[in-house]
Amino acid sequence: MTKPNQDWSKRVEELAHTRLNDCYQCGKCTAGCPRADVMDLPPTRIMRAAQTGDILNAARATSIWRCLSCLTCTARCPKSVEVAGVIDALRQISIETNTFSDESLKVVGFQKAFLRNVRRNGRTNETEMATDFEARYFFRRFDVMNVVRLGLLAPKMLARGKMHFKLGSPVKDKELVKRIFDRCGVEL
């Protein structure tokens, strides 16, 4: 019988299509990571945690949501490990197990709001998505400065015709999009 932590490592390998033990901890991913300076666990240490089966701890790291998915780590890995894919797998697990760090709330909230919007419209309606995201974030954190920043930005976007209240062209078969989401087991 496999131990639970080995099951988690296996799940990461399946999601990321990569072998965790291929990583020999050279540190090249962290050296090139543009966000390593703001990460609690930089990519090399994320990889190590994943190798040792310490998945839930890695899924709690703030760094997996500070990652911008720029894919520099994956592009440079001398062992062709899908480092960014491992981070994606940990993100998915952190949402499924609801273990993402409190500090990551805003980024997680953004990604979820984005997909809720796609599920509803088939395409992103940016203004509707941003309103949904910012409103939910406000009621979680009461971050007044954030509202002020948005209040300063919105008129600039409006003046340049970059804020739209309707989609340029709507999707005809929206129900199909909902069925695709449901078949993939997406919970938002």
Partner: peptide, 20 residues
């Protein structure tokens, strides 16, 4: 009748959706 590709969000939340 194209739909969104999933962009930066799908691959973080659900691998299968990011392909679908």
């Amino acid at each position: 009748d194209w739909i969104c590709c999933g962009a930066s969000a799908a691959h973080c939340i659900n691998k299968k959706l990011s392909t679908a």
